[in-house]
């Protein structure tokens, strides 16, 4: 029997749908071989470039991965750390030694450092086979959230919201002046002027909606321009603000760790020495281009 592709490239396929028949083709991501046929394992877009059949999922739960930066919510205080909700079926552990640089006495009230209900930007350091998750906040760009708003998007849309080498996120920041932190779990922090946060929210909803359209970045930029007008690239004041915040970042030392601010996604490459999240790669954890706000 001859081999044959059964779907168009980028067609919507549903679970079990045959992508190709025959041994000339190989099952790739989110597909499986069933006798002669290669079938989809999940709802998504077929990817039929070359011999390997793949499916890109269009919806579904976020799977925790080591190295991902996520936004989580402190749900409980334990003996030596916190339990953090991650937007997955699994809560994570944040140990006190991974939360703050300073020495914490035994028996100290941990709620002074992080309180139940607080949201944090944290990084996953370990995931077990049973999806037990460890977090850290002791890296640049990880902090306790004090201002702004958090919105939820589908985890599959996160790469679109970050954009190619962080292009989309830079646009958002440039035109709204908001600090934007995109967690890989789909939680997004927007922090800026109220009406600008609202604008950024709308634009992110737009990106979600149009996630798979061509020229998305251009469309979004055109939209932002039409709403707020031209905004020059890399405004100088944001640079200054970064620096300022970097230097005097801690008004209250007992609060979340903010020692070393990370650098803008689009500048990360210029400072290889800095241990910034790999912001240049859209698939990798997000980075915000502005310092975590510590303005009281």
């Amino acid at each position: 029997m001859s081999s044959e592709i059964k779907v168009e490239h980028k067609a919507v396929v549903i679970p079990g749908q045959v992508l190709a028949n025959g041994m000339d083709y190989l099952p790739g991501e989110e597909t499986y071989r069933d006798g002669d046929a290669i079938r989809a394992k999940i709802l998504g877009l077929a990817n039929v470039s070359g011999r390997v059949m793949k499916v890109t999922a269009l919806s579904g739960p976020y799977m925790p991965k080591v190295g991902d930066t996520i936004i989580g919510k402190v749900s409980d205080i334990l003996m030596s750390g916190w339990r953090v909700q991650t937007g997955t079926p699994y809560s994570a552990m944040l140990n006190v030694r991974d939360a703050t640089q300073r020495f914490v006495r035994k028996g100290e009230d941990l709620s002074k450092i992080l309180e139940i209900g607080d949201y944090v930007v944290a990084k996953i350091t370990n995931v077990t086979s049973q999806n037990l998750i460890d977090l850290t906040m002791k890296e640049p760009g990880l902090f306790r959230i004090r201002n702004g708003r958090i919105i939820q998007v589908a985890a599959q849309k996160v790469p679109r919201i970050i954009g190619k080498r962080g292009s989309m996120i830079s646009l958002l920041k440039r035109y709204t002046g908001c600090k934007v932190v995109v967690g890989q779990n789909g939680s997004v922090l927007l922090d800026g002027a109220v009406e600008k946060e609202a604008l950024a929210t709308k634009v992110i909803r737009m990106i979600e909606e149009l996630a798979h359209q061509s020229g998305l970045t251009e469309k979004i930029e055109a939209h932002l321009k039409s709403v707020v007008g031209e905004v020059p690239e890399a405004p100088a004041h944001s640079e200054n603000r970064d620096n300022r915040d970097n230097r005097n970042s801690r008004a209250a030392p007992s609060r979340g760790f903010q020692r070393d601010q990370h650098v803008p996604a689009d500048k990360a490459a210029d400072k290889p020495a800095e241990k910034a999240p790999e912001a240049k790669d859209a698939e990798k954890p997000a980075a915000s281009t502005e310092a975590p706000a510590s303005q009281e």
Partner: peptide, 21 residues
């Protein structure tokens, strides 16, 4: 569900809402 428990009352005090309404 994410609830912006801080932002909502702060905004409301200024006569504003999270969704811009």
């Amino acid at each position: 569900m994410i609830v912006n428990t801080n932002a909502i009352p702060k905004l409301a005090a200024k006569g504003m809402r999270l969704d811009g309404r």
